[in-house]
Design a binder for these strands. Structure first.
Lengths: 206, 206
DNA sequence: CAAATATAATAAACAGTGTTTAGTGAAAAT
DNA sequence: ATTTTCACTAAACACTGTTTATTATATTTG
């Protein structure tokens, strides 16, 4: 009898329905301003129903987390066509910048918000999507080292963390409005210039 | 008659009483977990009273903001005794790291949280405390350039933003638990190593 | 097929949140 | 002594995430 199969399928469809509604609302109006009741209303179910499919709001956030990493990895995949390792690294950086600026709410969720990281499942099974992205950076850097860059650096993980830190810092200062005191509206230009300078710094490193 | 003066003084004392209670609670249990009702209870007043002295919770957060910058600037002041500009910059970086790690809730409020930045007063009058800190970094970098570092860099503001971005990125990845997937407990060591590598990168930049 | 059971969905409640409003009692001014 | 001003608060408003007890329906069993 295929009843259990059908029920399982229906359950998965319901999970997807909730997640899709959540994503739309979250990306449209932000995470804080989206309530369980909003999501329930959007799918025309009672708020309590959502709790039959997701443990709590954090688990819902966390599911979007994974989708975000998948999207980012897809954006990254275009660099695989590039042969020159350093050119690859630069393009990877540009793709990271573009991803964050095009999907600010998603980037915020993945790298800035602290709510989803408090979920237990986080340290365990998942964020290996996050770890995989970091691995991608590590591989690219390893290729750069092999091609003669980062001459005095042997610790690939350290180099990766350093580069990630800079990129993330630049973006989160922007996303969390800490560059606002510059008062002009050349914020994008400033981001581009800082990125260029950092690239120069990497180039020079003997 | 000194009645208006006394009333003004009493008002200032009340503002201070509220702020002090808020700071204690915020730093002890975090910002999200501290409510207006908690603060009111601590000072033995009704929640509504707080609104007679502060427009809303954000204005309260924002007042702590300023105190945070003052504390940070005080921590920075020890570098003024250092003569060598580059040594000065390194120490400034170390002080910034130390401030963030010793005062995680304060750092979060000042540089990561988005709530206080939505306050109107923010873009205007204040965050000039923040701008002043950035100015301090700029001056230090200008001295480094004068002493022969950053040979190909003329844009001081860009160099400052680049350095700030790296420092902030490293710290916010740590504070927001995005380095947790490393799984070992050498997070502090990783932060130190990334900092050292970045210093090397600056040194090398022709 | 009818009775018993399992289950999906929900209304309502719980315990909290930031904030506003209407009203009270005491201090200050007339 | 009376009026006015003003600090203060109880209570309410409109929310929030989450849990519980209940109902209606679908499935299984006798």
């Amino acid at each position: 009898m295929g009843i259990v199969e059908r029920k399982e399928r229906e359950r998965e469809e319901m999970r997807e329905l909730i997640l899709e509604a959540a994503r739309k609302l979250f990306l449209a109006q932000g995470f804080d301003k989206t309530s369980i009741r909003n999501i329930a209303e959007a799918i025309e179910y009672s708020p309590a129903t959502i709790y039959l499919y997701y443990k709590d709001k954090n688990e819902l956030l966390y599911s979007l987390h994974e989708a975000g990493f998948q999207k980012m990895m897809k954006d990254f995949s275009i660099v695989e066509a590039i042969k020159d390792p350093f050119e690859k690294l630069i393009t990877l950086g540009n793709q990271y910048l573009k991803f964050a600026i095009d999907n600010p709410e998603l980037y915020d969720l993945m790298f800035i918000m602290d709510a989803p990281m408090e979920t237990l499942s986080c340290r365990e099974e998942a964020w290996d999507e996050g770890a995989r992205s970091f691995e991608f950076l590590k591989i690219t850097i390893a290729e750069c080292i092999e091609a003669g860059h980062f001459k005095n650096t042997t610790d690939i993980e350290n180099a990766s963390l350093t580069i990630w830190s800079f990129m993330h810092g630049l973006l989160s200062l922007h996303l969390r409005k800490r560059m606002a005191f510059f008062e002009d509206d050349r914020e994008m230009e400033r981001i581009q210039n800082a990125f260029k300078l950092f690239i120069e710094m990497i180039k020079c490193t003997y």
